[in-house]
């Protein structure tokens, strides 16, 4: 094919090499390289947003503070009797997960905003990797969630939380939280690319995330709930990851919760993630 000439200076790379096999391998590698590079670029964009507009971090910073305080002191006296361990020890992993689910839920709201403002048109007319627009936001919110997890653990330790599950499991806690939230961010992304409106995206987020996090072992042992709720709370992925985190911090069986958590995360990233990317590609 006849390559058009750029008017001056830079010219884009020519299309990949020509034998079918080489073309296939070449285009996969080429593809992969640009998925990474473009995602990094858009992650940078989002991190600059947080840097220039630190108000965006207000709820990430004060949310855990408020929740830890509220549940430890206000509800702790009443609820705390129902848990076998110290209530703050019981509570921390739940608050970690809940708060960071809200943090990564920003992914979809931001994507909807990009669409409303015509950004996505610009991106889609560029020769960049398709998944990077979503990927950049997912990675950026995950980074924030990771630091938020460390901050939350810090506050909890100040108000009396202690690790009883050993050094390495304890250390892995923020990583596990971030990994799960990375998965969850793709759900939010799917919502964002589907509704394309920030208002709607944030209400859906709210009405999904609140019940999902409350109807789990986040705040109270599920045995105290009515039977029909226990069934739901038992299969809720939030319960799996909260229990995993709790046992990492406080000791207890890990593998039983690690496996479902891992499977859910894989499903979110690859299943929901591909669906979100597919929907994004089909935007018209």
């Amino acid at each position: 094919m006849n390559l058009p000439q750029a008017v001056n200076g830079w010219r884009p790379e020519p299309p990949a090499p020509s034998t079918p096999v080489r073309e296939a391998i070449g285009s996969v590698l080429y593809e992969f390289r640009w998925i990474i590079a473009d995602t990094a670029m858009l992650t940078w964009r989002m991190l600059m947003h947080y840097r220039r507009n630190p108000e965006m971090l207000l709820s990430t910073i004060f949310g855990p503070l408020m929740f830890l305080f509220l549940f430890t002191y206000v509800f702790g006296g009443a609820i705390g009797r129902s848990t076998e361990i110290n209530y703050i020890d019981y509570l921390l992993p739940g608050v970690l997960i809940q708060n960071n689910i809200f943090t990564v839920m920003q992914t979809g709201i931001g994507l909807a905003d990009d669409m409303q403002k015509g950004f996505v048109d610009r991106y889609r007319s560029l020769p960049m990797a398709r998944s990077a627009v979503i990927g950049g936001r997912v990675v950026a919110t995950t980074v924030i969630a990771f630091f938020s997890a460390i901050w939350t653990i810090g506050i909890a330790v100040v108000i009396g939380m202690r690790f009883h599950g050993g050094f390495w499991p304890g250390l892995s806690l923020p990583f596990v939280v971030a990994l799960f939230c990375f998965g969850f961010a793709w759900i939010s992304a799917l919502v964002g690319v589907s509704v394309r409106d920030t208002q709607t995206a944030s209400s859906i987020t709210f009405f999904v995330a609140i019940p999902l996090t409350f109807l789990s072992s986040t705040f109270v042992p599920i045995e105290t709930m009515p039977g029909w709720l226990q069934a739901f709370a038992g299969v809720n992925p939030i319960t799996q990851v909260v229990n995993l985190s709790r046992n990492l911090a406080q000791g207890g069986p890990i593998a039983v919760y690690a496996l479902p958590t891992f499977l859910w995360t894989v499903f979110f990233v690859f299943g929901i993630g591909s669906l979100a990317t597919w929907r994004y590609k089909r935007i018209s």
Binding site: F75, A78, I79, R81, S82, Q199, T200, S203, F206, F207, I210, P211, F214, L215, F219, V220, P221, T224, M225, P226, L229
Partner: peptide
């Protein structure tokens, strides 16, 4: 409708959540 939903649905949701999630644990 957004606003209407938020101001009606979320109060109802919290009634249900508090009752069923915390009800068993708060004496």
């Amino acid at each position: 409708p957004e606003l209407l939903m938020f101001s009606t649905l979320s109060p109802v949701m919290f009634v249900l959540l508090f009752n069923y999630v915390f009800g068993g644990a708060i004496p």
